[in-house]
Design a binder for these strands. Structure first.
Length: 293
DNA sequence: GTCGCAATAT
DNA sequence: CATATTGCGA
């Protein structure tokens, strides 16, 4: 049956998180500091993003990433003489959130191991701001993760791949996303699907990049800086502490990253380390839909 | 030019 | 520690 062709795509679309779920950040391309340094009038405010984000049903818009928003119009021109820093300056480190990683895995899964090369993956993911280097770096790490699991599953004998595989602290992220079976068996059976080659569906146009400050020096104080950045994007950030939970949730997703380990002063936003593998035996903590699909 | 991988840097 | 960057062979 040839239903594969039509099905895999629809299915994929369905699993894509709704805009409400991942509209959280906007990549300003330049850090606030830099903006100031260049006399750029607050790139973030140029286009305040009102509370109600227009639900963007995929498919409807043919334009892949028209970047209808962000890309401060002036960033390029209005800066009045200023060059385009965005292109020359270094981008902030990309934070691989579980959601983002999920897209990554999906892309690789649907491309097939053969075609899953950085450039292609990047295009398929169509995440604004994502570079080939980002993907390449992540892919490299991901491959090591897969390799570990393979080795363990067939040689360890224990069968407890999870236990053995998890010992690498770096697997936390990867563990949050299911790994398609065929990933572990490169040359096994005919599990290879024929992809009609997808010309970048790019159903969504929302960017979700986590931004970290330039990191001048001190470690432990950065959390606040980052959050402020994000809050500002939402219009206002009253230092009071009364925010909308609706996006607080999102902020957490991005915030989960753990930075310098301070002497313990701030209550860390519980990291999603607990998985089904846990001795708990029960899915706890649903900070975000880790394995909903 | 891009990929993949190890080493190295931040 | 998680990513980024670099170097080099394919």
């Amino acid at each position: 049956m040839r239903e594969d062709d039509s099905n895999w795509f629809s299915k994929w679309e369905e699993e894509l998180p709704p805009p409400e779920e991942l509209m959280p950040l906007s990549q300003s391309l330049i850090t606030p500091d830099l903006a100031l340094a260049f006399n750029i009038p607050n790139p973030n405010q140029i286009h305040h993003t009102p509370p109600p984000p227009p639900p963007l049903p995929p498919q409807s818009s043919s334009q892949p990433n028209s970047s209808a928003e962000f890309d401060s119009p002036e960033l390029s021109g209005a800066a009045a003489g200023s060059d385009e820093p965005a292109r020359t300056l270094k981008r902030p480190r990309l934070v691989w959130t579980p959601q983002l990683h999920k897209r990554f895995v999906d892309a690789v899964a649907h491309l097939g191991i053969k075609n899953a090369v950085p450039k292609t993956i990047m295009q398929l993911m169509s995440v604004d701001g994502l570079t080939r280097e980002n993907v390449a770096s992540h892919l490299q790490k991901y491959r090591l993760y897969l390799k570990r699991m393979q080795g363990i599953s067939n040689g360890g004998g224990g069968g407890s791949a999870a236990a053995a595989g998890m010992d690498a602290a770096t697997d936390h992220l990867f563990a949050s996303s299911p790994v398609p079976a065929h990933f572990l068996h490169p040359g096994r059976a005919n599990s290879e699907h024929f992809m009609p080659y997808v010309p970048v569906p790019a159903a969504m146009q929302h960017h979700q990049m986590a931004v970290v400050g330039p990191g001048p020096g001190p470690g432990p104080l950065h959390h606040h800086a980052q959050m402020q950045q994000q809050f500002r994007h939402f219009g206002n950030s009253p230092p009071n502490g009364q925010f909308d939970h609706s996006f607080m949730r999102q902020a957490q997703q991005q915030q989960v990253q753990r930075m310098g380990n301070g002497p313990a002063a701030v209550p860390p936003p519980v990291y999603v380390e607990d998985l089904e593998s846990s001795a708990n035996g029960r899915k706890i903590l649903t900070l975000f839909p880790t394995g909903d699909d």
